[in-house]
């Protein structure tokens, strides 16, 4: 009796089955282990100035989509992909300052109001028409520092009115203190900017004379002397009206990259309604938060492997021993 029991105990298949049994029993005891996972806290500031209404993106069905719509879709996509426990604060930008809509909201538990708020972003929330992006960016960085978050700043980089020839204001903070990235929204080719009346109805596109083509505050640019009608006192910018393409818009990537370099942020181009997660994970500060890992799938798969081995290995071995030909007769009882 003991002999056949001992023989059975030596059988590797019994050992495998017993191993599987132990693993299964373990699923009831050690189901999860705690470990730290990296969450992200981020402030998203979205430019909602007029140039963000330019329709130079395409929806999957081929109809044109505006930069703002695409940016919204990208943020909603980001929120749905962020690891649970991450939080997002939202601000909008026009004129020269960001306006905080809400402080960070958790992306999983409070997903539906967060998603609804992102969906409600509208250019009609803008309170002034100017778009001084450098000033807005600097103040967004301050705001993110105040909230203790990273920053995503979505803009097309189109300053209105155009910055003076001497360049815009300088960044006075310390570069790199706030981490994050600037997202350049818009196509690389020039497109027309839609125009709206005071009731919010679209009335056409901006023409060349509708917008300021050159900033004539401050000292004149270096080439002013060669302009027609130049006169140092009475016409320091030349005597003719400025011509240009300020009424058309494209993503001003070199400008945004320059701003990013000055402020210690990184830069990414918005290629469509998504794709913000990878650059964010790269640029953001990882914030370790205790999470849990379910061990049961691991234990269960090993147990399944052992169990299947018990059934599959012997016939395979037999097969090999016979030089590949299947067993001639498997009689079942």
């Amino acid at each position: 009796m003991t002999r056949f029991l001992a023989r059975n105990l030596r059988d590797w298949r019994l050992q495998a089955l017993a191993g599987a049994l132990v693993l299964l029993a373990m699923t009831f005891v050690v189901s999860t282990v705690t470990l730290t996972r990296n969450m992200i806290d981020v402030l998203a500031v979205v430019d909602i100035t007029g140039s963000m209404n330019v329709r130079d993106y395409k929806r999957p069905d081929g109809t044109p989509a505006s930069r703002l719509e695409t940016a919204k879709a990208a943020l909603r996509d980001l929120v749905s992909r962020l690891p649970c426990g991450s939080r997002l604060a939202l601000g909008i930008f026009t004129e020269r300052r960001p306006f905080l809509l809400f402080t960070p909201i958790e992306v999983c538990r409070d997903f539906s109001p967060l998603d609804g708020a992102l969906d409600a972003l509208d250019w009609r929330m803008a309170w002034e028409g100017d778009s001084r992006i450098s000033a807005g960016l600097y103040r967004s960085i301050e705001m993110a520092a105040g909230l203790g978050t990273d920053l995503i700043f979505i803009s097309d980089g189109h300053e209105a009115p155009p910055p003076p020839s001497t360049g815009g204001p300088d960044f006075e903070g310390k570069p790199g203190v706030v981490r994050g990235f600037i997202v350049g929204a818009g196509g690389y080719g020039l497109s027309q900017i839609p125009k709206f009346d005071d009731r919010g109805r679209e009335t056409g596109f901006y023409g060349e004379t509708d917008v300021q083509q050159e900033n004539r505050f401050g000292p004149p640019p270096a080439d002013a002397e060669s302009r027609p009608g130049y006169e140092p006192r009475n016409a320091p910018f030349g005597a003719t009206a400025a011509h240009g393409t300020e009424h058309l818009s494209s993503v001003r990537e070199p400008y945004l990259k320059k701003l990013a370099a000055e402020t210690g942020l990184s830069y990414a181009h918005l290629d469509g309604p998504g794709g913000l997660l990878a650059p964010l994970m790269q640029a953001a500060t990882p914030r370790p938060l205790p999470g849990s890992l379910d061990l049961r799938p691991l234990l269960g798969s090993i147990a399944l492997g052992l169990l299947l081995a018990v059934y599959v290995v012997p016939p395979l071995r037999a097969l090999r021993r016979r030089g590949g030909s299947p067993p001639t007769s498997w009689k079942k009882v």
């Binding site: 809509l101 809400f102 109001p113 009609r124 803008a126 309170w127």
Partner: peptide
């Protein structure tokens, strides 16, 4: 101008 901050919700944290 008006700004919708959070739509109607019972998620009080938000």
């Amino acid at each position: 101008s008006p700004m919708l901050v959070v739509p109607m919700t019972d998620r009080h944290a938000a």
